[in-house]
Amino acid sequence: MTDLDHEFEEELRQGLMLRNAPDGFTDKVLSRIPEHKQAQPIRWPVWRWATAAVVALAILLGVGFEKERQQRIAGEHAREQVLLALRITSSTLQAVNHKIREDRSSKEVQP
């Protein structure tokens, strides 16, 4: 190994040696960062929040009203069917009653 190699190796060792940062280094670095570049929370303007809330409320109310409307339609339909069933029951009972009476009266007429 030549002297030149030794010299290079020594320089390399010196260069890679771990050294502590000088006092105040961190503060210096931080002070150089411009204030406006520091991270800031993203803020939505109030009117946007208000609009989103109103839209959400409108959707919820709309869904609720529609559900209630459909329920009422189905209920009215069911009610009509109940009444129809009762009317048919009534008329069937009356028809049976009528036939029995007719049958009885025809038997009474016969000698």
């Binding site: 129809l84 008329s91 009972l93």
Partner: peptide, 21 residues
Amino acid sequence: DLSDIRGNFGIPQGNYVLKAE
């Protein structure tokens, strides 16, 4: 109930399908 069915829901025969489905 039977009396009510016969009475209150009784309408002339054949007309019970006014809204007929």
